Amino acid sequence: MVRPGRLTVLAGPTAVGKGTVAADIRRRYEQIWLSVSVTTRSPRPGEEDGVHYHFVDDAEFDELAASGQLLEWAVVHGRHRYGTPRAAVEKVLAEGRPALLEIDLQGARQVRQTMPGAFFVFLKPPSLDELVRRLVGRGTEDSEERARRLRTAEVEMAAESEFDISIVNDDVLRATDELVSCMGLTPAGGSPDPVESRH
């Protein structure tokens, strides 16, 4: 169980549903603070600046990284950069509130270096075949991008042993409630709204 004021880091392979689990937590668990990542990619349909991401250009991202304002950052799938604003995380932890980062494997490894006391959760698919089905089914990438993401996912799957616990995302509500339970909170009921993952 996660103590108050301890950071929980949720990571896992691309298309595993990290964003959907995070959105379900945002909808059903208002007491959990969710970090909003900074990214250099363009908004996808339905995404709002400051809600789903902070959308910035390359120069702005360079400044944030160079000035130490990011807790972690990474180039994802060889294209866009994503990062976690440091000040917001530190403020919430100082207040003793439950905080969750939904990030990629590169980011999780950086956070382990800077905040070794964090609790690391690996979200995994029921199988690699199911991961491929989800990746192809969401239709947001072309064939080249899907192939790139699948190669990345296979590498990410091999990192499961680096995490404190693993949760299988075979059902969003169940996976969300298991994560919330690990954070020391009582699971609630409801139905999820599917959304795109951070990466």
Results as ranks from 00 to 15, higher is better:
P194F: 10
G68T: 03
A59V: 12
E47M: 13
E144D: 11
R112W: 04
S181G: 15
R133G: 09
P125H: 14
L105H: 14
L131P: 07
E178I: 10
R133K: 14
E130M: 11
D62A: 14
Y53Q: 00
D164W: 07
A87E: 13
D170N: 11
E196R: 15
E154C: 04
E154Q: 09
A175R: 01
L10H: 06
A94Q: 06
R6C: 02
V89N: 05
D142H: 07
T40I: 07
M157E: 07
F120N: 03
H77C: 15
L131A: 05
F122T: 00
G107Q: 08
R3N: 06
S37L: 14
S67H: 10
P187D: 15
L105N: 03
A74F: 02
R44M: 14
Q69N: 10
D58I: 07
Y29Q: 14
L101V: 03
A66T: 09
M115R: 01
E95T: 07
E72L: 09
R134Y: 05
A23D: 04
T114C: 00
E30S: 12
E47W: 13
R146S: 11
A22W: 07
L71W: 00
H54F: 09
E160N: 01
C182N: 14
V172K: 03
G96M: 13
A22I: 11
R151S: 14
I165W: 12
F119S: 01
P192I: 01
A147Q: 09
Y82H: 02
F55C: 09
M183N: 00
S161A: 15
A23I: 07
L34I: 01
A94N: 03
A65F: 05
E141S: 03
E30F: 14
E130V: 09
G107H: 03
E154L: 11
L71G: 02
L150K: 10
E160S: 01
